[in-house]
Amino acid sequence: MSDALDRREFLATGWKVGAGLLAAAGLWTSWDYLWPRLGAGFAAKVKTVAPDAVPANTVLEIPEARAYLTKVNDEVVALSEICTHLGCKVPFCDSSGQFECPCHGTVFNRAGDHLAGPAPRGMDRYKVEIVDGVVEVDTSEKTSGPAPGTETINEPPLGPPCGDSHA
């Protein structure tokens, strides 16, 4: 037997390598093909209201941006209304002045700090800019909410919660 690769061996290995390459190419192209083309959808800039119209003791919902506007220490912030736990929409409870997620009971304060419940962090924020005297929310630029325990503001509940809070 010569050391040179004979035809039989070459074919026996060759077809496996070929099939492997084909499988890899298939996987790669399918992944690329199915990968969502982001930038579509609601990831856009949303014009809202004048900064003066943003409340400091409650929140203002901007449905097109899926966000709430409020003032935290005199600064306008946009809080994403998508719960950082599992994505439910977090409503604001007027009687307690806090956010209460209906899905698994996470509670956030008005600034989006995590107070209780299973969410791993506070509410995410969108970038805001004042353009021509109007607050513009950029939903394509998101910063993750603060770690639990962070206290951006210290506001005890104004009154009773809306749902029975989670035991």
């Binding site: 199915l34 969502p36 982001l38 959808g41």
Partner: peptide
Amino acid sequence: RDLLLGGPTVGSA
């Protein structure tokens, strides 16, 4: 998740 959803949230994709 993005691959499943085809976008940032549950939508037409």
